[in-house]
Computed example of a mutant assay.
Amino acid sequence: MSKLFIIFFVSLILLLVAYTPNIIRLYKLANLYNEKTIAKNFINIDKIFNNISNPIPSSENPIIFKKKEFYLPETYTYEGKKLNLQEGISHFHTDGLIVLHDGKMLFEQYWNENNKDSKHISFSVAKSYLSALIGIAIDEGLIESIDDTVSKYLDDFIGTGYEDVKIKNLLQMSSGIEFNEDYADFNSDINKFSRATARGKSFRDFAKSLKSGREQGTYNHYVSLDTQVLAIILESVTNMPVREYLYKRIWSKIGTESDAYYITDSTGADMALGGLNASLRDYAKFGQLYLNNGNWHGEQIVPESWVIQSRTPDADHLMPNAGDLSSNEWGYGYQWWIPGNPITDFTAHGIFNQFIYID
């Protein structure tokens, strides 16, 4: 065997060792949304992604919702048409559904191998949790004002597209950052983000690479990295990971029944923009918390004024059906959507139709 061949063979082995983990991560990511396995994938994120946070422990005093007898209606009305509800549940590949009213569980059912203990990926529902934590941090004096700019808290963002963006405009998806969030477009910024972080780039570094495309505070345009920048600010002022602050301020206090976890990046930073994984019952508890204006059994966990502001659009470009002032039909608050019919409804919403809908 020639010396040249041995060198080539050893080099090939070293390349495989070096790059195989990245190749595997990219393969898993590419197949995450495979129609045949998507339901199973969404409750097994910890087996698909290499970077997973430590568990967010369940509450020491878990609360199980009392049940009240209730039957789902056979039909529902959409755009003036009466449709069969069970057919709709099947059509939208529903994994789980809980209905609460007056603090009681009227309905709970699971499909597609899900159960009450499944940890389901939240996607952008996680953004509404981050909003709550920002409100708490402001109430605690850790963040002085929502009119503060990113660079006041993050020196390394000076000279980036986010340097002068106000916290309020991050909360309201009005940062002016140029970003394509189309998951169907291979070359979109959100897909570039997924591939870059799968290869090991940090959320922070990716955020710093983005550029401003328009005046902030004038146009509602969905940019998931806006939420991640909020998370970076939160970690800076609290001196702890998002998951730890979430546990201490919310998760441990609302009777959660199960542990939860985040997807993280290569540095261990939590994916606050959409990486929370939790049980449906515990997602429902967060919805109940916001229905009660941030109060849980007499304890004010999220400031009431913050909850009200979070669900109230306060500018023309944030209103439902804002036309040329928004890239979205729904209105927007502080990381909460306002569908607009009626205006009092609001919802956390993930890309694959994960909802915490409050009416």
Score class of each variant (00 low, 15 high):
residue 1 M to T: 02
residue 13 I to H: 00
residue 13 I to R: 01
residue 16 L to P: 14
residue 17 V to D: 02
residue 24 I to S: 00
residue 27 Y to R: 06
residue 29 L to D: 00
residue 30 A to F: 12
residue 33 Y to W: 09
residue 35 E to I: 06
residue 36 K to W: 11
residue 38 I to N: 08
residue 42 F to R: 03
residue 45 I to K: 04
residue 46 D to H: 08
residue 46 D to R: 07
residue 53 S to P: 04
residue 56 I to Q: 15
residue 57 P to G: 02
residue 58 S to N: 09
residue 60 E to K: 12
residue 61 N to V: 02
residue 61 N to A: 07
residue 64 I to A: 08
residue 65 F to T: 03
residue 66 K to L: 00
residue 67 K to E: 05
residue 67 K to N: 06
residue 68 K to G: 00
residue 72 L to T: 11
residue 73 P to T: 02
residue 73 P to G: 03
residue 73 P to E: 01
residue 80 G to V: 14
residue 85 L to D: 06
residue 87 E to C: 06
residue 93 H to F: 13
residue 94 T to D: 09
residue 97 L to W: 09
residue 98 I to T: 11
residue 102 D to T: 05
residue 105 M to H: 14
residue 109 Q to H: 15
residue 121 I to H: 03
residue 122 S to R: 03
residue 125 V to D: 01
residue 126 A to K: 03
residue 131 S to H: 03
residue 132 A to S: 13
residue 134 I to G: 05
residue 134 I to F: 03
residue 143 I to L: 12
residue 143 I to P: 04
residue 148 D to W: 07
residue 149 T to W: 03
residue 155 D to A: 14
residue 155 D to N: 13
residue 156 D to P: 07
residue 161 G to N: 05
residue 162 Y to M: 10
residue 162 Y to K: 02
residue 163 E to Y: 10
residue 164 D to W: 08
residue 164 D to G: 09
residue 165 V to T: 07
residue 166 K to I: 12
residue 168 K to R: 10
residue 169 N to P: 08
residue 169 N to K: 12
residue 171 L to N: 10
residue 175 S to M: 04
residue 177 I to L: 10
residue 178 E to M: 11
residue 178 E to A: 12
residue 180 N to Q: 11
residue 184 A to W: 15
residue 187 N to K: 12
residue 189 D to G: 12
residue 191 N to T: 02
residue 195 R to A: 15
residue 199 R to W: 07
residue 200 G to N: 05
residue 201 K to Q: 15
residue 203 F to Y: 14
residue 203 F to D: 08
residue 206 F to Q: 02
residue 207 A to E: 09
residue 209 S to I: 13
residue 211 K to V: 11
residue 212 S to W: 04
residue 213 G to K: 11
residue 214 R to Y: 07
residue 216 Q to G: 10
residue 216 Q to T: 13
residue 218 T to R: 15
residue 224 S to P: 09
residue 225 L to C: 06
residue 230 L to E: 02
residue 235 E to Y: 01
residue 236 S to D: 07
residue 237 V to K: 00
residue 241 P to K: 07
residue 242 V to K: 01
residue 243 R to Y: 05
residue 246 L to K: 13
residue 247 Y to H: 14
residue 248 K to H: 08
residue 249 R to P: 02
residue 253 K to H: 03
residue 255 G to L: 08
residue 264 T to V: 15
residue 268 G to L: 13
residue 273 L to Y: 08
residue 275 G to M: 02
residue 280 L to H: 09
residue 280 L to N: 07
residue 280 L to K: 09
residue 281 R to W: 12
residue 287 G to T: 08
residue 287 G to H: 07
residue 289 L to N: 05
residue 289 L to Q: 04
residue 293 N to I: 13
residue 293 N to R: 05
residue 294 G to L: 01
residue 295 N to D: 10
residue 297 H to Q: 14
residue 298 G to S: 04
residue 299 E to R: 12
residue 299 E to H: 10
residue 304 E to H: 02
residue 305 S to D: 14
residue 306 W to I: 01
residue 308 I to R: 04
residue 310 S to I: 05
residue 314 D to H: 13
residue 314 D to Y: 15
residue 318 L to V: 10
residue 322 A to S: 10
residue 323 G to T: 01
residue 324 D to K: 08
residue 324 D to G: 11
residue 329 E to F: 06
residue 330 W to V: 03
residue 333 G to Q: 00
residue 335 Q to F: 12
residue 336 W to R: 03
residue 338 I to D: 00
residue 339 P to K: 01
residue 341 N to G: 05
residue 342 P to H: 01
residue 350 G to E: 03
residue 352 F to L: 10
residue 352 F to C: 07
residue 353 N to P: 11
residue 355 F to C: 08
